[in-house]
Design a protein around this nucleic acid. Structure first.
Lengths: 138, 138
DNA sequence: CCCTAAAAAGATATATATTGTCTTTTTTGT
DNA sequence: ACAAAAAAGACAATATATATCTTTTTAGGG
């Protein structure tokens, strides 16, 4: 339950890789796909979604490719995940409260709210800069 | 993303209802299903799963039905959810770390661990007793 | 202006998971 | 023996996930 899809995983891999590249030049989709081991046609769809909301900037034609849309320290993991998976909704009652008052008041509802809150907080607390950073030997 | 399935929702409804009934007598599956507005054939499958792990006790034959397997204050929402949805796994790397070290060390991994932890904590912090309680007018 | 590189867009395909239903079997009390 | 009730198993429709392939649009370079 509550599992990230392949699409979400791929999305993170791709954009984290991009965040680790020099910011002054574009990356080819195929290079990214190869580097992070994702089917390039699938990654293309993902990056199209990123592009639409400005998470990445795309350049078409010869010399084209992708760049991060903003500085990596200003993009959170939450944004990335929600860009491709939609909003964090542990139960539909959280998005549509009318489902919830099936019989008066539902005691479970606040729990899902809490879950939603905690997940968002955890994901919003990490930026692409941190994710792209070389890890220290442990 | 991270959405409870119908099955999970139904499971909660069913067992919370059971927790709100007198503990000294059995409930018929059909009565529960009707009360919580769930297809009874579907709820049957769910309660079979509950029964196997002892969350509920089942009695077959005439006069049979279901009872809670333990006192409602000793059953957490986490147990109920995991009984039908499986473990809380926000990303498969959390369950199978070998997926994770695709390229050395993955900075995202601890975030998923954290998410897993927070969700479990939130769900484990609520018992059926609380969920079955009449809510106070607010 | 043409050619090529590259992303965007759209159509299609397959596999898996979800959400059930229906039938048969087993158990149990009367 | 009969009836009530859960257990078990087979089946089916739908939705979602996971892609792939083709065509179109855009842009740069000669």
């Amino acid at each position: 339950m509550m599992e990230l899809t392949r699409k979400g995983e791929y999305a993170i891999r791709g954009i984290v890789y991009l965040a680790g590249r020099p910011t002054d030049k574009v990356c080819l989709l195929n290079d990214i796909a190869t580097a992070v081991d994702v089917p390039s046609t699938f990654l293309a769809k993902i990056f199209q979604q990123f592009s639409k909301i400005g998470l990445v900037k795309s350049f078409r034609g010869t010399g084209g490719g992708f760049m991060l849309g903003r500085a990596p320290e200003n993009i959170t993991l939450l944004e990335v995940v929600e860009a491709v998976e939609g909003p964090i909704v542990p139960n539909r009652c959280v998005v549509n409260p009318s489902d919830c008052d099936r019989s008066g008041y539902c005691n479970v509802h606040p729990v899902w709210k809490r879950v939603q809150d905690e997940v968002c907080k955890a994901l919003a607390g990490v930026t692409l800069k941190e994710l792209a950073a070389e890890h220290k030997a442990k």
